[in-house]
Amino acid sequence: MLLIGVPPPTNLTVSCTNPNVSLSWEFSEQQTHTEFKIDRHFDLSRLVWKSEAHFMAFYGVNVTALQGGNQSKEAKTTFTFNGLKVAHVNCEYM
């Protein structure tokens, strides 16, 4: 169920500093009893470096805030190490 009163996460950020790839976001501290299925920082390194196919993939990330049985709209971003694909964040392999 989508509730207008549950604000979405903000400043969804992908950081890709080789070999570390992580995702982070902010959420208003004024909102109580808010949960995320993962913490506000998530390490994506193991997924990205699992294989060459994973490394060259295009990733879409969606994060929602949960309050009780209600959830916010999604905060979205995309990233890739593949220079032939267009994403919000184009990471460079060094």
Score class of each variant (00 low, 15 high):
Leu3Gly: 10
Leu3Ala: 13
Ile4Gln: 09
Gly5His: 14
Val6Ser: 01
Pro8Cys: 01
Pro8His: 01
Pro8Phe: 00
Pro9Ile: 00
Pro9Met: 05
Pro9Cys: 05
Thr10Gln: 11
Thr10His: 06
Thr10Asn: 10
Asn11Met: 09
Asn11Ile: 06
Asn11Phe: 09
Val14Pro: 11
Val14Gly: 07
Val14Asn: 08
Ser15Tyr: 04
Cys16Phe: 01
Cys16Ala: 07
Thr17Gln: 03
Thr17Ile: 06
Asn18Pro: 06
Pro19Trp: 01
Asn20Tyr: 07
Asn20Phe: 10
Val21Gly: 09
Val21His: 02
Ser22Arg: 06
Ser22Phe: 04
Leu23His: 09
Leu23Cys: 08
Ser24Val: 14
Ser24Cys: 13
Trp25Arg: 12
Trp25Ala: 12
Phe27Asn: 11
Ser28Pro: 13
Ser28Tyr: 05
Glu29Ser: 14
Gln30Ile: 06
Gln31Trp: 06
Thr32Asp: 02
Thr32Lys: 07
Glu35Val: 03
Phe36Asp: 08
Phe36His: 13
Phe36Leu: 13
Lys37Glu: 13
Ile38Ser: 13
Ile38Ala: 12
Ile38Pro: 07
Arg40Cys: 09
Phe42Ile: 00
Asp43Trp: 09
Leu44Asn: 05
Leu44Thr: 05
Ser45Glu: 02
Ser45Tyr: 06
Ser45Pro: 10
Ser45Ile: 09
Ser45Met: 05
Arg46Ile: 03
Arg46Lys: 11
Arg46Tyr: 01
Leu47Asp: 00
Leu47Asn: 03
Leu47Tyr: 01
Trp49Thr: 15
Lys50Asn: 09
Ser51Pro: 11
Ser51Val: 08
Glu52Gly: 15
Glu52Ile: 15
Glu52Thr: 15
Ala53Ser: 13
His54Cys: 12
His54Trp: 08
Phe55Pro: 12
Met56Phe: 03
Met56Pro: 05
Phe58Ala: 13
Tyr59Phe: 11
Tyr59Pro: 12
Val61Cys: 10
Val61Thr: 05
Asn62Asp: 02
Asn62Tyr: 02
Val63Trp: 02
Val63Lys: 03
Val63Gly: 04
Thr64Ala: 08
Ala65Cys: 07
Ala65Ile: 01
Leu66Pro: 00
Gly68Phe: 00
Asn70Leu: 14
Gln71Gly: 01
Gln71Ser: 01
Ser72Pro: 08
Ser72Asn: 04
Ser72Val: 02
Ser72Tyr: 01
Ser72His: 03
Lys73His: 07
Glu74Cys: 14
Glu74Tyr: 14
Glu74Ile: 14
Ala75Ser: 14
Lys76Ile: 11
Phe79Cys: 10
Phe79Gln: 05
Thr80Phe: 04
Thr80Tyr: 02
Asn82Thr: 07
Gly83Lys: 15
Leu84His: 11
Leu84Tyr: 10
Val86Arg: 00
Val86Phe: 00
His88Pro: 10
Val89Asn: 14
Asn90Ser: 15
Asn90Phe: 05
Asn90Trp: 03
Glu92Trp: 00
Tyr93Phe: 12
Tyr93Arg: 08
Met94Ile: 10
Met94Asn: 10
Met94Trp: 05
